[in-house]
Design a protein around this nucleic acid. Structure first.
Lengths: 214, 214
DNA sequence: ATTTTTATTATACGCTTGTGCAATGGGCGG
DNA sequence: CCGCCCATTGCACAAGCGTATAATAAAAAT
């Protein structure tokens, strides 16, 4: 009988195709709808192939979650490491996390789908923790740089606490703004966040909000 | 053959038992592990009974989500409507949302399990939206009361924006503190949140943090 | 007591799931 | 151009899922 023609691909490419297809399916149908067959179809292969690249569906899901978190955090880390005036970097750091593609329907759908596994599955908890700590550290770095440029001193305990609080603010407003996307527009959410951080860090009004004031 | 003995229960009681069992199973095993049979076993009945009280598993899950959200929001609404000095109410409002039983492993596990349905299922989105807006309104009420007591004026646009930002802060810090529960203790998280809100509302230092200062 | 009602059990059914595995053929080394 | 390797297919399988439904017994009604 006739068998479907196919094309071989390098291991790295196939793995990436499968992970991308996994994320597509999870975003669109949720965790429950992202079955092995759906994912395989999306990737243009048949279901059996998944077990050739991953130990099982669970491990592929973990790989997909790892990639999602990396993609979500990458812009933040890049901005935190840029040269330039620290307050401007902080401003762009906050803005990046409250605008597309971080703050959009697909990303929140993926994040929401995976986060249910964290309290249940230690492997997911570990991935989450790792990225959370790295994000926190980048944010703290930025805060310390701001204080230095302003000639203010800050001890590590204080800077870490500020980072935790501001991280919470960013996460919470990202969640609100993305989950109910028809209530707020990006600029309004971002403006509120910038103003809030200004106050929390005791920056002079306009330090972060110079242009986007309303 | 012998058939298991059983006891009839009033409709309201059985429904509540089933919803409680649903929440227990979801908290412990996640959405995927909360099967009809697991839930029925936890409730002390057999699986078929679920279809006698609910149109299907989906509708029972929605009822469980509704109950979870109501339980999570109830303390906040109660505090917001209490008599007493507004800043103290606001302080207790924030504290309540960052301490057990709101900020604990079981509640975050439930919240995280259900939130994945919001981007996929309009019914879940509607339940979320309804409770989110009510929460926001209670918080805004509290903020306005504080301003009035301090003799400061605030227009509705501004008060709503502050409520959105502070709600984001609370949600985000609740998420951080509960999801990685071994990194922070309740008092530290709550203290940081209170200090942050003080700054955001331009309250005098100590207005909310009089005792819990560090 | 007896009858009626219906909450609950018990079982079966069809479907989908993730996985295991033999067959196949695409593409590279010789 | 051939022959080998292994990436890929195709199918079968057992397990578990939500649901449907007939039988049963608990409790209410008469």
């Amino acid at each position: 009988m006739s068998r479907r023609t196919y094309q071989r691909a390098p291991e790295a490419v196939r793995r990436d195709d499968l992970i991308t297809a996994t994320l597509d399916c999870v975003a669109e149908f949720g965790i429950a709808g992202a079955t092995v067959r759906q994912i395989a179809a999306r990737a243009g292969v048949t279901g059996g192939l998944i077990r050739h690249y991953f130990d099982g569906k669970d491990q592929m899901m973990q790989a997909a979650y790892r990639q999602l978190m990396s993609e979500m955090c990458a812009p933040s880390h890049a901005i935190a490491r840029e040269e330039g005036k620290a307050p401007d970097c902080l401003r762009r750091f906050i803005l990046a996390n409250l605008s597309p593609p971080i703050a959009d329907a697909r990303t929140i759908s993926l994040w929401a789908a995976f986060i249910g596994h964290i309290p249940i599955n230690p492997e997911f908890a570990s991935i989450h923790r790792e990225h959370y700590l790295a994000f926190l550290t980048s944010l703290e770095l930025l805060i310390v740089r701001c204080f230095e440029e302003f000639g203010r001193t800050i001890d590590p305990t204080h800077s870490r606490r500020l980072a935790v609080a501001i991280n919470g603010l960013i996460d919470g407003m990202w969640l609100e703004g993305s989950l109910i996307d028809d209530m707020f527009d990006t600029d309004e959410i971002a403006g509120m966040a910038l103003r809030s951080v200004e106050h929390m860090l005791e920056f002079a009004p306009g330090t972060l909000t110079a242009i986007a004031d309303s």
